[in-house]
Design a protein around this nucleic acid. Structure first.
Length: 339
DNA sequence: ATAATTTGACCGTG
DNA sequence: CACGGTCAAATTAT
């Protein structure tokens, strides 16, 4: 049991280093506004890698630390098998769509959906699974929001998303995101429930494209450390976090486990970070307090770019370090997230 | 002009 | 009838 204390100490140490490195990020970014010299790029790259490694290490340590009981103190990304339903592994490829996409042509007046629009009856979910995550936007697919609903007994609205390529490819994948009603001091967590696997090639292509395009995008890599504008009521946090079409510059936060609401500031200075982990624009990154006039998230839907399975040359790293046990862990962890 | 999001209403289920 | 999920017109953003 002594090792528990040791581990906790180790976690604290690693977390501290993580924070320190993150604090350096804005400085580097400031320099990189101009054509960055290669040394800056190298430094950026190294920083990014260091953050990843630390993050993964922390994740692993935390997991070992908390056996099963009790709420995860910090669970950056935890995959929770959805309830009963049919549980299918969160892999993008187990394509089983169901049937007929029935285009509902009815107008609003002669209300559509004569039970047909509901795909026959109650949706027969080909698969369903859920995750709890601080970064609900980052699942490698592109989503379009199609609804939002206040759910009984919850503080936050639930946002509904479907695959962007539903029309093109008939992809039946959907998901809804519900911000967890947790302590306001805690970083917001989101319960994301997925229904149906993606059956469209476009989805994976988009993800792949993003993977390629975002590599070397350290700005994107770093962008996640600061706050998004805070939405007063928090009602749209989920939506803000989930939307996949970025209104803000599509900066990409590597789906790393984040430990703090805002790593850019010391904890004490974090002003009620409600949306700490979302990708944010550069301006937001440096002006954490930026807000709209009304203090709301600009169309909270500020969708986060989809397709983020790519984290700054991450795949390359992994490929290059086949026998590194840490990388194996990383692979394991990220495979969990990457579906 | 086009695309994405918002939002209120509709619909099926329990 | 309440509730959750979805639709689609209206609105907003690009």
């Amino acid at each position: 049991m002594a090792c528990v204390a040791d581990r906790e100490a180790a976690v604290r140490e690693v977390a501290q280093v993580y924070e320190l490195i993150k604090v350096q990020q804005p400085l580097l970014l400031l320099h990189s506004q101009q054509p960055p010299p290669s040394t800056t790029q190298l430094a950026q790259s190294l920083l990014g890698k260091a953050l990843r490694a630390l993050n993964v290490a922390l994740s692993v340590m935390k997991q070992q630390q908390q056996p099963a009981a009790g709420p995860p103190a910090v669970t950056p990304i935890s995959v929770v098998k959805a309830k009963p339903h049919q549980l299918s592994p969160p892999s993008p490829a187990s394509a089983d769509t169901q049937a007929a996409i029935v285009p509902s042509t009815a107008t609003r007046g002669a209300k559509r959906r004569s039970s047909v629009a509901m795909d026959g009856k109650k949706k027969i979910k080909s698969s369903s699974w859920a995750t709890v995550t601080a970064v609900p936007y980052d699942d490698g697919y592109e989503w379009r929001k199609y609804g939002e609903k206040k759910i009984n007994g919850t503080l936050f609205t639930r946002s509904y998303f479907r695959c962007t390529y539903k029309g093109d490819a008939g992809c039946q994948a959907t998901k809804h995101v519900q911000q967890v009603d947790n302590n306001s001091d805690d970083p917001p967590m989101f319960h994301v429930t997925y229904n149906n696997d993606h059956t469209c090639n476009s989805c994976s292509k988009a993800a792949a494209a993003n993977t390629g395009s975002s590599s070397n995008n350290l700005a994107a890599l770093l962008a996640g450390c600061c706050n998004m504008k805070q939405e007063p009521t928090g009602q749209h946090a989920a939506a803000a976090a989930m939307n996949m079409k970025q209104k803000e510059p599509p900066l990409l936060l590597p789906p790393l486990v984040d430990l703090q609401p805002s790593a850019c500031l010391p904890h004490e200075q974090i002003p009620q970070c409600q949306e700490p982990l979302f990708p944010v624009s550069m301006e937001q990154q440096f002006c954490g307090a930026l807000r709209d006039d009304d203090g709301e998230i600009p169309s909270a839907t500020g969708s986060c770019i989809s397709g983020e399975t790519s984290w700054d040359g991450y795949s390359g790293d992994m490929a290059a370090a086949e026998d590194d046990p840490l990388h194996d862990l990383e692979r394991f962890l990220f495979m969990d997230m990457d579906y």
